[in-house]
């Protein structure tokens, strides 16, 4: 009975507030106290868009960041995560692009922000948004079955040069997207003819299975996905795409492509962006807050749990980094004739 009463009171309250406040709010961010001093603080809840469904990498990053912001007391305003799924991210990006100037609509993104527009599937790319800060990095790993005849990337690539049709590479996404491009990038640096690479995509979670039962030969994936299988002696990692060896048990055993004489790396960066034309003061605010988040021990724990690397960049650095990345990827897609 008590519960019902409470509920009733709540409903009454809501109806009253509804009646009183409709129309009193204006759109966008015009009610912010920006002023000339360059100081800005959020005075209403912040929304972070995960341009994917619940449970994926973007969603996890956004939810964990939102939670840690509040838990570590870095931002007091409520932060809500909204999923805008579709088009490999383009639906979410279009949504944020429509919030021009608003300092309350952020989104999380990673290399697909460059890849999807280059594949002609999104009108918006990173240049349309305001980069706020990058926070984490992840790397690619190329794995083969434990009893495969190759022991390092060079042996694999040599065979690929000799008989490209005998080796199949599998990844979880379509050609032109991340799992494909990360492999292409390294293979190209090793001198393989990338137009001859056989790549199949398995989006239903069967990629690892296909590797284990020998249907395919090479698995292009993220480092974290390989660790347990390597520990159990089911697969071996021929190379990872980081600059230097990664830290951590098992991880530090993975040779980088670089140390095998292949001069290429691939970073799966993940960071936060704002809508187009976001106010400078707000950008500064978020830069600082993301820096605090990145340095907090709470977020360090999250990183450790998910096996992410720390990689903080402020807005300026981030923008430069993205411009360079875009050029590189565009070059690869041009070679394949996939760029649109």
């Amino acid at each position: 009975m008590k519960k019902r009463l409470a509920l009733f009171a709540l409903i009454l309250l809501m109806v009253v507030t509804t009646a009183c406040s409709s129309g009193s709010k204006n759109a966008g961010g015009s009610s912010d106290d920006k002023g000339d001093s360059g100081e800005w603080k959020p005075d209403k809840p912040i929304e972070i868009v995960a341009p994917s469904g619940a449970g994926g990498g973007w969603d996890t990053t956004a939810r964990m960041a939102a939670k840690m912001f509040n838990e570590a007391g870095i931002i007091d305003q409520k932060i809500g995560v909204v999923n805008k799924e579709g088009g490999g991210g383009s639906v979410g990006w279009a949504y944020v692009a429509s919030k021009e100037g608003s300092p309350y609509n952020l989104f999380v993104s990673s290399p697909p922000l460059l890849l999807v527009p280059l594949n002609g599937q999104s009108k918006y790319d990173h240049e349309d948004f305001t980069p706020l800060a990058n926070v984490i990095a992840d790397y690619a790993a190329f794995a083969v079955k434990a009893d495969a005849k190759w022991d390092n990337l060079n042996e694999l690539f040599d065979d690929m040069k000799k008989d490209p049709s005998s080796i199949t590479v599998v990844g979880a996404s379509a050609p032109g997207s991340m799992d494909h491009i990360q492999f292409i990038k390294i293979a190209k640096a090793a001198g393989v003819d990338i137009t001859k690479i056989k790549y199949v995509s398995d989006q239903d979670g069967g990629a690892l299975t296909s590797l284990l039962n020998g249907s395919v030969d090479v698995y292009s994936t993220g480092v974290a996905e390989t660790v347990e299988q390597v520990k159990a002696g089911k697969i071996k990692v021929l190379g990872v795409t980081s600059e230097e060896r990664l830290e951590g048990d098992t991880l530090s055993d993975f040779p980088t492509a670089k140390e095998q004489g292949i001069d290429a790396t691939f970073v799966n960066w993940r960071g936060f962006f704002g809508p187009p034309k976001m106010d400078k003061a707000a950008v500064k605010y978020y830069e600082e807050k993301f820096k605090e988040l990145s340095d907090s021990k709470e977020f360090a724990e999250v990183r450790e749990k998910y096996g992410w690397d720390e990689m903080y960049m402020d807005s300026e650095e981030y923008k430069k980094f993205l411009d360079e990345q875009k050029e590189e990827i565009k070059g690869l897609l041009d070679d394949l004739g996939l760029a649109k």
Partner: peptide, 20 residues
């Protein structure tokens, strides 16, 4: 939607909502 093996967008009529 986008074909996984080729990345070709099929029957989407340029609509981002249909890509997946």
């Amino acid at each position: 939607g986008i074909d996984a093996q080729t990345g070709t967008a099929r029957f989407t009529f340029g609509n981002a909502h249909l890509l997946e």
